[in-house]
Design a protein around this nucleic acid. Structure first.
Length: 278
DNA sequence: CTTGGGACCTGGCTGC
DNA sequence: TGCAGCCAGGTCCCAA
């Protein structure tokens, strides 16, 4: 079976990027800003971006959902979202034609924002909270308990898969990890969120956390475009049981993995291990 | 509140 | 071999 679509950065990939960038960039200040594709920047000219960034230090790099937040010494934040095909690369040897912007730092480090499909975003904001306020809770926080998940899902009469993908309900889960979590919890993606039992929600909660933690330990999933800023391939895709595995035997029962659209998104699951009724 | 659709975007794939 | 057209999906936006 071959992978038919690209992985996009979800929570584990963005967390890995944060982890690799922090020791290189935190405490350093911007010395240069080059923008090759101004579409990536939202609402600010290159000249203005340069004027505001150069000389500012990066106090810290944080992740919220799938957003990467560079907190700056002047109080602003440089917010990046990689969307589908965005990657951040440290000190690239050559600039691919998909590189949209390059930031230089006081220690000589160069950071390239590369994005084949040009859906990624970079924004300079006064307050990162303005961007992240709409996001639901972080699934890896201690506070993300079965009780909280039950609270989030109980009024949602939508497919549970759609609920997991809704960033205002839970932040950071994308298509691949939603499928993996639902398989691990043996829940059909079309089950209504408000119809899950307490036991199913508890299982799903633990599955989400386990899947994400395992993927972070594997430095994310490299199915197509994703690489870490140091250029490593992630290996989380080797742990996948259903995501992007149409027709492969289910690791649970051996029957073929199926794919159905849920809210227009390809959803991989095992009809035998994840029955619609239960 | 929900669903459904389109828009954005481009490379890879399919089918003729 | 060439080319048109479809598809992938994170997020936003609009209509019903």
């Amino acid at each position: 079976m071959s992978y038919t679509s690209s992985t996009m950065p979800e929570l584990p990939e963005v967390e890995t990027i944060k982890h690799e960038l922090s020791p290189q960039i935190v405490g350093r200040s911007f010395t240069s800003v080059i923008v090759f594709d101004c579409k990536i920047m939202s609402g600010i000219s290159t000249a203005e971006l340069r004027r505001q960034l150069i000389g500012q230090a990066v106090c810290g790099i944080a992740r919220r959902g799938k957003y990467l937040l560079f907190n700056l010494s002047g109080g602003q934040s440089l917010v990046m979202h990689l969307r589908m095909t965005g990657t951040l690369l440290l000190n690239p040897e050559a600039l691919d034609r998909h590189v949209r912007a390059v930031f230089g730092f006081s220690n000589g480090v160069q950071l390239a924002f590369q994005d084949q499909r040009r859906l990624g975003l970079i924004r300079l904001v006064e307050d990162a909270e303005a961007v992240t306020a709409k996001l639901g809770p972080e699934p890896l926080d201690q506070s993300f308990t079965p009780r909280l998940l039950a609270e989030l899902l109980k009024k949602r009469h939508i497919p549970v898969k759609a609920a997991l993908l809704d960033q205002s309900i839970i932040a950071g889960i994308g298509n691949m990890y939603a499928d993996e979590a639902l398989f691990a919890a043996r829940i059909h993606p079309l089950r209504k969120a408000d119809a899950l039992s307490t036991r199913e929600i508890a299982t799903l909660c633990h599955a989400i956390r386990h899947i994400l933690r395992t993927a972070i330990a594997a430095e994310g999933a490299s199915v197509n475009t994703y690489v870490t800023p140091q250029g490593h391939l992630g290996s989380a895709q080797f742990h996948f049981k259903v995501a992007h595995k149409l027709g492969d035997p289910c690791p649970g029962c051996g029957r073929p993995i199926m794919r159905i659209p849920v809210r227009g998104r390809g959803s991989y699951f095992c009809p035998c291990c994840q029955p619609i009724t239960s």
